[in-house]
Design a binder for these strands. Sequence first.
DNA 1: TATGAATGAGATTTCATTCAT
DNA 2: CATGAATGAAATCTCATTCAT
Lengths: 202, 202, 202, 202
Amino acid sequence: MVGNKSGDKYGLILEAAVKVFAENGYHNSQVSKIASEAGVADGTIYLYFQNKKDILISLFREKMGNFIEQVKRELEELSDPVAKLKRLIELHFSHLEADKNLATVIQIQLRQSDPEIRSAITGPLKEYFRLMEEILAEGKASGCFYPDIDVRLARSMIFGTLDEVATCWVLSRRDYRLSDQVEEVFRLLVRGLAVNSKLPSG
Amino acid sequence: MVGNKSGDKYGLILEAAVKVFAENGYHNSQVSKIASEAGVADGTIYLYFQNKKDILISLFREKMGNFIEQVKRELEELSDPVAKLKRLIELHFSHLEADKNLATVIQIQLRQSDPEIRSAITGPLKEYFRLMEEILAEGKASGCFYPDIDVRLARSMIFGTLDEVATCWVLSRRDYRLSDQVEEVFRLLVRGLAVNSKLPSG
Amino acid sequence: MVGNKSGDKYGLILEAAVKVFAENGYHNSQVSKIASEAGVADGTIYLYFQNKKDILISLFREKMGNFIEQVKRELEELSDPVAKLKRLIELHFSHLEADKNLATVIQIQLRQSDPEIRSAITGPLKEYFRLMEEILAEGKASGCFYPDIDVRLARSMIFGTLDEVATCWVLSRRDYRLSDQVEEVFRLLVRGLAVNSKLPSG
Amino acid sequence: MVGNKSGDKYGLILEAAVKVFAENGYHNSQVSKIASEAGVADGTIYLYFQNKKDILISLFREKMGNFIEQVKRELEELSDPVAKLKRLIELHFSHLEADKNLATVIQIQLRQSDPEIRSAITGPLKEYFRLMEEILAEGKASGCFYPDIDVRLARSMIFGTLDEVATCWVLSRRDYRLSDQVEEVFRLLVRGLAVNSKLPSG
DNA sequence: TATGAATGAGATTTCATTCAT
DNA sequence: CATGAATGAAATCTCATTCAT
């Protein structure tokens, strides 16, 4: 159900698309290139996807959906907002690191202007944003985060920071591990948010 | 008055391109659309630019170059790293706010994957990054910023935050003023960086 | 029947190209004109040929290749250099006469300067030249041709003469038969070459 | 009047055109390239020539016209058809050798298909052909050429041979002198034409 | 379901020619 | 006469999508 490979063409095409998009960029990725990478005929693509745009959108929905579900589950098991924040950073980075091509697509290719693509992406992204904002709201409520922070802006800071760090990693030769930066990034962010940031050692 | 000395076709085309790119996205902006927006013939474009890509690149270099020069000048007049940080945020936001179309192009359209575009953009962007990192290094040296912050990561936080806030603003209907957020964003960032962030009462 | 096994788009396009090139000249032959003459879509051309130039080159290689093979085969069956020379003239003229459009393309359109076209043509043409030079060398060795003739120059005379006669024929309204001139041309050439040109009474 | 250089733009443009056509081929020679080579503005070209085609045509008429006049004059001073033939070969080759660019244009670029160009060229070329045919007719009348030769075909042989030899020279790296081949070429041709070709030793 | 040959709209770019100065 | 910036028609080629098999 989750690991889609082997036999089901839908998954095959999606995997191929991740690779091709990552290597060439959305606009330089021909449908035929995806098809041949997936080992199917050009026409077959259209049995599973409405059009090229739909591949990118589905890809995002599928992958991002899974990711958000995971984050949700893991955060539910924690109560401390600060711990949640840290976990979120860990998951964000490890997720991207696990599939570098996917990371490239999400960090670079998805920044498309096409309104249809944007709005299709909005859904899962908003959900992710909501998770972040929940942490922030909890933190404010519990008193461990500054009471004066603007939740939306703080969320922008968190996401913007994670995103920029990830983008740098993708654009670099990726000769360092993204997950090695969790600690540092966490420290930077939590200081700006948590009242008493005697940082949890470790 | 609007910025295009009439008769200066180069500028005219650049202004037109900003508008057309902002409204349609780079890949949906035909050269002929830019030409007619600029009030020139299609072929005239190619008297001033090598090709379509070159329009986008020139546009960025021109605008970003000016912006960075301005930032440099203004920061030189300040000595306090905290004050510099604040000024930088103000300039970043007011710059984007001054030309919403340009902001859209920079925040959305430019995030393409085309290697040629990316590398052309790299130069000015690195310069901007360097400015930020200088502030951070100064802050660490003078003791007003935490000594343990990683300059590169902190720069990612600053830029990522500004960038994300700006993107949200561009993607919203822009029914609020970006510059109204300077104060809040500054507070968020400085707390994560400055040791003694009894924030300058601003 | 005419040479294009229907359904074979490659051949269809080539036949169409011969006609269109002959009627309009290479530079005045739009790809779309060839496509519509061939009864295929413009894009279809590019499934079979890399670009417009490639059509002309393929056309030449295909036709010239076949022709040379035929000449080779037929000459092998003769031993007398003088007889070989005559046969070559016959074949040269009848070949061109069999497809007047092709003749036009070869005599007129192909004499372009485009270096890519030139070098692509060189191969088969050199082969043809080699055949001629072989006849001349044999003739010298067997003593029936003058021992003092320069093989390369004599080949230029043979080819130049055939070529010029053919060009005149193409440029005339073609109201006479090229093959009717075999005898006369042969007589002119052989007298310049063969020692004892009591011409074979033909 | 004849040597046009220095000051008169008409000649300047023509010289430039010879060079540019020779180096790039007619269809790859932009009018602007000719203009800049001639040191005049693009528009100036159109004060002296109707259009691009007219440059090529004028060039041919001018150069070819001069050449034919010269040949005429020189042949008039000779009476022996055989000597005339030899002189013609000498002039043909030395003329081409004197201006290699012009030679290239005449040998290669002029083989255009454009009917307008072709017919414009026809005039001077026919005149040249007529000269050759006159020699042949005289030779037949005086009995020194075979009585059975077809004047038109023999002319094709002469011109075709000279042309092909010249083309080979142009297409080679031109590391040998064309005029060194006069003797050999003459011998080849005269044997095919003259009854008693105990070749004039020299 | 799966194929992949064929389609054809559409985009970029070139360049001969014009014309206001 | 001379200029050269501007024009805009026209041509090549790409590629997402279809559909007969």
